[in-house]
Simulated assay, not measured.
Amino acid sequence: MSNRALSSETISLFLGEVIDSKGQQMPVAADVEKIVRYVEAETGLKFQIRVLPWRRAQLLVKNGEGIIYGFSKSPERVEFYDFSLPVLVQKVWAIAADYGDGKIMTVNTLTGKTISIERGVSHGFEFEKARNLVFKVDEDTASVELRFKKLFAGRSDALFWQARQFKRAKELEDYLIHEVFINFVDRELAQKKITISPEPLYFDAVHFACAKGKYRKEIAKINTAITQGKINGKLTSIIEAK
């Protein structure tokens, strides 16, 4: 019960923005909202969700102005941020334009290629090892349509897409074609063909995080909520729901 003691302070909780095909900020994903509300209910913490460009959100958190969710560890970040236990693991797939060459994408086949990632995003330690050594990284806009437009124009060789719910590349392909591309303003772009790596290239653990030493008690409460939620199934059911 002590973990649920109500907090009198409202804490800013930063999330990264996603931009739709019309350039508008999309609503917070339902599963993310549920995870945040679960943590609130289990810890007694009160969050004010703030959706910002990812780099700006990280800077504000680094300056001690709140907690961030959806954060991956990297060698640079662990110097400046304290991380919660992992909440979930995202699969990171590579997506390329389909030119009928049947190439199978692995990390090794991306040697020397230019990879589009969202600006300010890291996909974990293994990704950081390969970044700018195996492949070059182009930090891109938060707009999904613009990222694919650059891909099909040949300005990037592949883009990385993270999603935890898909077990096979075909599931991700169907989702992109029937739920993402269908909403593109550029209808010609929506007809383009893609190829997806047969397996995820990286597995990226996602955390809550804060500036070093800033919210130690709060992160401890969040850790308890994460642990208990995976034991009793409350958090697991949110994460695994489709």
Rank of each mutant, 00 (worst) to 15 (best):
T227N: 13
I196T: 00
A97F: 07
G154C: 09
A169Q: 13
V39R: 00
V185H: 15
Q228I: 10
Q24M: 10
V39T: 00
F71Q: 02
E76K: 15
L13D: 04
P200W: 01
F181E: 02
E118P: 05
G44A: 08
K73E: 07
W93V: 00
K221H: 08
W161P: 05
M105V: 11
K212W: 14
E199W: 14
G102T: 08
G154I: 08
Q228A: 10
I35A: 02
V137A: 12
E33S: 15
L88Y: 05
L60I: 10
V180F: 13
E79F: 08
F80R: 06
V36M: 04
F181D: 04
R55A: 01
R147A: 06
D20C: 10
L15S: 00
R50D: 02
V121K: 03
N132P: 04
I19M: 04
V39E: 04
Y69R: 00
K34D: 05
Q191L: 15
I196R: 03
A211Q: 04
N183W: 09
R4F: 09
A97D: 07
M105I: 15
V36Q: 03
K242F: 15
T111D: 09
Y175E: 12
T114W: 06
D31P: 03
R216W: 08
F125G: 01
L201I: 08
L59I: 13
E126L: 09
V28G: 06
K103A: 10
F135W: 07
A205I: 03
Q228F: 07
E128K: 14
E240A: 06
K103Q: 14
I95G: 03
T111E: 12
K212V: 15
N132R: 09
L6E: 10
K167G: 10
E33Q: 14
E171V: 00
A211P: 06
K242W: 09
H207L: 14
E118S: 07
V39H: 01
S84I: 00
M105S: 09
V92S: 02
I117S: 09
E42P: 03
F181P: 07
Q58V: 08
T141I: 12
I49H: 00
Q228G: 09
D140Q: 06
A130I: 07
S74Q: 12
R147S: 02
K193E: 13
L59S: 01
D20W: 03
A96Y: 06
V18F: 14
K221Y: 12
R37W: 10
D82S: 15
V180N: 07
V107P: 05
L52D: 03
K234N: 15
V137L: 14
A220Q: 08
F152T: 01
E173G: 04
T111W: 09
G233Q: 11
I196F: 01
F83N: 07
